[in-house]
Write a protein that binds this DNA or RNA. Structure first.
Lengths: 240, 240
DNA sequence: GTCTATACACAGATAGAC
DNA sequence: GTCTATCTGTGTATAGAC
C-alpha cells in the first residue's frame, strides 16, 4: 500500500459529513438542505484550520473566519451556535472519520509483524492526508472545555494501546523481543506525531511519507524484532 | 550524572536574570531596584507559565495574570510594556539559560558514544527541570510575531544539529553505523520532546526521567552503534 | 439562506493618587 | 513601587432586512 493509493481511497470518507456520529450536532444547524450544509461546512472547517494553524484558534476572530470562508458573520452563525460549538463539531466530525479508517486497515492485516508495519504506515498516511486537522487537534484540544479534553486524551491513549497490544501479542508468539512495550508504544507515537507537527521541516528536506514510514519501521523493528525473524531485513536496513 | 545532582547544579543558573542577554529588555522595565525586579519577574513568569499552560497564552487575560502573580494590573505594566513584550522577555531569559547549560555539559564529554548519551540525558534533565517553560515554548511560539518564530525554529534546528554532528563524527571513527543521521537526529528530538509534552502520561505511569533516558539511549544505540562496540551493552538492554 | 448593522461584554493599556 | 479607576478598541453574538 503506497500513499497515493491510500489517499484516493480516503477522500471518499473524508467528505462524509452525515454519518451517525454527526447527528448530535445537526440540531445546532439552522440550514435545512443537506447539500448546502455539506458544502459550507467544508468551507468553514477548512478556513478554521487554515487560520488557527497560523495564529491559534483562540486568536482567530469570527471576522477572520468570515473573510476566509467567504460567508458573512450572520451566515456563519446559522451553522453553529458559538465558537466553541464550531470547535466541537469540527473535532467530532474529523475524529469519527479517522477512527473508522484506522481500524479498517489494521484489522485487515493478519500476520503480527505486518500488523505493526501497517499500523505505523496507515497512521502516517492518515496524518499526511489530513495534516491540518492533526496539527490543529494536537495544538488546540488542550485549551478547551473539560469533556473535549477528555476525548483528546482518550484518543491519544487509544492509538497507543493499539501499538502496545501488537507488541505484546508479538512477544507471546516469539516474533518480538521482551521489552517495555508501553514505553515502546509511547515513543513510536511520538515519532509518528513528529511527522505532522514538523511538516515544514520534512517538506524542506524532501523527505517523503514513504521514506519516513520505512525509517520508523526499521528503527522499531531493529529494537523489537527477535533475531530469528530479523534475517530477511538486514540488507534492506543498509539501504536507508 | 543523575537527575537530582543535575537539578541542584541548575537552580543557580535559572534565577540569574541579569545576564548579558537580558539587558536589551531592561529598558522596558520602569523599576529601579534589581532585587525587586528579580523577585517580581519570577512571580510574573511563573504565573504566566501556569495560566498559559492551562488555557493558552492568548486566552490568559491581564486580570488573570494580576490575580495569579499577586500584583495589580498597574504594577504589572511597570515590568513590561505590553503582553507581547512580556512573552519576548520570558522567552529570551529562559532560552539564554537553557542554551548555556546544554553546551556546558556536552562540551565536557570527550568519547563520542558518551557524547551522544550525555546529549540525550542532559536534554531530558533540562526539560524536566524546566518543564513548564519547555511545554509553553513548544505550544506558543508558533503563534507569535515573525522574528520570535524565527528564533524558535532556529533553536529547534540547532539542537537537532548537535545530534546529527555527533552521529556523523561517530560514523567516521567507526563507532556508529552508516545511517541517515539527519533523520535519526529528528526522531531523537521527537522522543525527547514527548517527555515534556506528555508529562502527565509519564507521571501517571511512574516512569522516571532516569528510566526514560535509559530507554531512549538503548533504542538509539541499538539502531546506530556498530556491532563491535555493541558487545558491552547487550546484557543491559535485556534488563529494560 | 445570506446579508448589514449593531448590541454589549471584556480585553489591553494608562493616568494619577498614595 | 503599587494601587484603583477608567479609557478605548475589538471580540462574540444577534436582529431584522432582503
Amino acid at each position: 500500500m503506497n500513499y497515493l493509493k491510500f489517499k484516493k481511497s480516503v477522500s471518499n470518507y473524508a467528505k462524509d459529513f452525515f454519518n451517525e456520529d454527526f447527528f448530535e450536532n445537526r440540531k445546532n444547524i439552522r440550514i435545512k438542505k443537506e447539500s448546502t450544509v455539506a458544502k459550507n461546512l467544508e468551507k468553514i472547517f477548512d478556513a478554521t484550520l487554515k487560520i488557527s494553524n497560523k495564529k491559534g484558534f483562540q486568536a482567530m476572530t469570527m471576522r477572520d473566519l468570515s473573510r476566509e470562508a467567504g460567508l458573512s458573520m450572520g451566515a456563519l452563525y446559522s451553522y453553529f451556535s458559538s465558537k466553541e460549538d464550531l470547535l466541537k463539531m469540527l473535532q467530532s466530525q474529523r475524529r469519527s472519520v479517522t477512527k473508522r479508517i484506522l481500524e479498517e486497515y489494521i484489522n485487515h492485516e493478519t500476520g503480527i509483524a505486518d500488523k505493526l508495519r501497517t499500523a505505523i504506515r496507515i497512521h502516517l498516511y492518515l496524518s499526511e492526508a489530513m495534516q491540518p486537522w492533526f496539527y490543529f487537534s494536537y495544538m488546540e484540544t488542550k485549551n478547551i472545555s473539560g469533556p473535549e479534553q477528555a476525548k483528546a486524551i482518550e484518543s491519544e491513549l487509544y492509538t497507543e494501546k493499539i501499538f502496545e497490544n501488537i507488541l505484546k501479542d508479538g512477544e507471546k508468539s516469539g516474533v518480538f523481543l521482551h521489552r517495555n512495550h508501553q514505553l515502546t508504544a509511547s515513543v513510536t507515537k511520538a515519532m509518528l506525531q513528529d511527522w505532522y507537527l514538523k511538516r515544514w521541516k520534512y517538506a524542506k528536506r524532501n523527505v517523503s511519507v514513504e521514506q519516513y514510514a520505512k525509517y520508523l519501521i526499521s528503527i522499531i523493528e531493529t529494537f523489537c524484532l527477535s533475531s530469528e525473524h530479523e534475517n530477511g531485513r538486514k540488507k534492506s536496513r543498509r539501504e536507508l
